[in-house]
Design a protein around this nucleic acid. Sequence first.
DNA 1: GAGCACTGC
Length: 766
Amino acid sequence: MADENSRASSKKRASAEGDSENNKRSKVENGDMADKYNPYLAHTYENNDMEGSSLLSGMKRRETTARQAERAEDGEYNPWTGQPHSQRYFGILKTRRDLPVHKQRAEFLEMYHNTQILVFVGETGSGKTTQIPQYVLYDELPHLNKKLIACTQPRRVAAMSVAQRVADELDVKLGEEVGYSIRFENKTTPRTLLKYMTDGQLLRESMHDHDMSRYSCIILDEAHERTLATDILMALLKQISERRKDLKIIIMSATLDAQKFQKYFNNAPLLAVPGRTHPVEIFYTPEAERDYVEAAVRTVLQIHATEPEGDILLFLTGEEEIEDACRRISLETDEMIRESDAGPMVVYPLYGTLPPQQQQRIFEKAPAPLRKGGRPGRKCIVSTNIAETSLTIDGIVYVVDPGFSKQKIYNPRSRVESLLVSPISKASAQQRAGRAGRTRPGKCFRLYTEKAFKKELIEQTYPEILRSNLSNTVLELKKLGVEDLVHFDLMDPPAPETMMRALEELNYLACLDDDGELTTLGGLASEFPLDPSLAVMLITSPEFYCSNEILSITSLLSVPQIWVRPNSSRKRADEMKRQFAHPDGDHLTLLNAYHAFKGAENRGEDVKKWCHEHFLSFRHLSSADNVRNQLLRIMESHGLELMSTPFNDKNYYVNIRRALVSGFFMQVAMRESTNSKVYKTIKDNQLVMIHPSTVLDNPYEWVLYNEFVLTSKQYVRTVTNIRPEWLLEIAPQYYNLEDFEKGEVKTALTRVAEKVQRRQAMKGGR
DNA sequence: GAGCACTGC
């Protein structure tokens, strides 16, 4: 508030003095309002009103020096706003100049001037994410050529928080000169010069701007994480750089795997900046451990008993393992306190599905000694991989690394994505160890041998693109105008079989024609931030008179499970769920729960309380609502009609079930035999069971499922009863019986086809 | 009759 006021008053003073910059500004403000407030025209917006840009007047775009920039930064007036710099600004500026990356500003600029693509390696604490984009800003001088600078991040929180930090550093208001753009929130204005965004967001933008023409420089940060979006962006940018020689590209990465990036970008020059972390001493076990959870618990207790003050971070693979380890550590610590006067230790679990409030608890201070002069307390955090990249906890001095994590793997043959506990990579192990040295020198205890580290761990975790179903990606690439997928220059090309599977799936969904060209339906489907099957279902739903309901179901399927089932009250939670149950299955049950939620909201009830009472996740239902609004807007903008079958029409639910088939006809299973609980998936012939979370209690013969989960058994989850004749009618291209191999499925479907024919013949005969 | 690494549009 205080900042706002001082800014406003100084502006007044300036115009009273007849400041020419300010006169210009008012002229522009009377200009074309429509253009001015269209965010998509940000780069064409004439902002000649750049207050204070005269402070940069001696500088020539892409020929500036570090000295010039620093002089501008040191000035009394902010060159980007024309306002006097605040006291706080100079304080921050001092700390910025202490960052390791600052020493190489001149070197960076020199390289930047002489190359189109630059690979930049900076370890944690180098300051690259905040500083490099600012160095670029002072060199690109975006107000001169109306093009933005973009810096991508793999995660939303990072895009938001870094943007805020950089806005503070530049002494501007977030959303003005420095902004961010993430799904559901675009915090930029036509004045924005530097924009932080998620990599997925830039990818989505580029579907409508194949040359990324709004930008003069694109910085891909955290490229070593190799997210799907980063990998595709790298390939696109490599292509675009050929057409747009004026576009500069910086690839920023944390690892020394940078040579791979360099080579990929035609031997682009490389600049490396040291990080600022403390040394971490690494210990290995002399022999391999049989039970890593047991070994991990033991190691934590040993640290607590023998090592000096400092918090502990233990990496495990999943919720169950973590909760179990937390219990064991707490119990043993209590005993240690009783028997050997150990200090107190609080244990916090940390994983993604934990409610944010509980996640926040990890930042609480370690407990004080039990008595004056007693041994110091500490905290121990038992976490999934989330603490490896997404969340940073200061004060960690000891890391315990058993060497495993859950990783997504994709089997194109069975078309199944699953999570598997696998050994981590060397890069991951280094990242984990690094978490011990953020505030002072630390120790990392690896629960595997040094030999195993050197010989058995792979260098880098396989990039996501090699571990995923690519239907979505292939559809995006088609929309991005990539004609030849086989020769599309990805850093790590996926297996041809994975590509073939994706093409085949998209062809069945009629998103691609037989020549592999994008169809109208495919083009439309790519507009939605959804998997192709969900998008197709949504687009087709008006034909089934239930687009409103399918829109809700699609949103509910795009967020984490809305059902809450605490260990302590499973039975009550299940009873509550039964209130919403629909006899035909889980999709309709989701819809019932959503309608009840909206009903409570419309009645003006305390929805949070209502959700709690009904064992529903308020967070996830709200986020489904958010998604629904976004999808709704996209539907409206493409003229897709919103309609419902009247609720008392006997076809209300039938229409919805039929609409489900239009997107999910490839995810259908048939019961093995009467009274059997085993089903067989159509065409893939996988034996599956219906997941115990289902509301279905009738052993229906044909079911459609949302997902295939591979855990202790093969399950299909979120399941709805369907009629086989719908399959033949709605997806004849997939259910062409001539293509089916001999077996029960073919026999059953043939019988159904004959029945349908007989019925039609009788109707015709009458 | 059981689970859910983490992101992103």
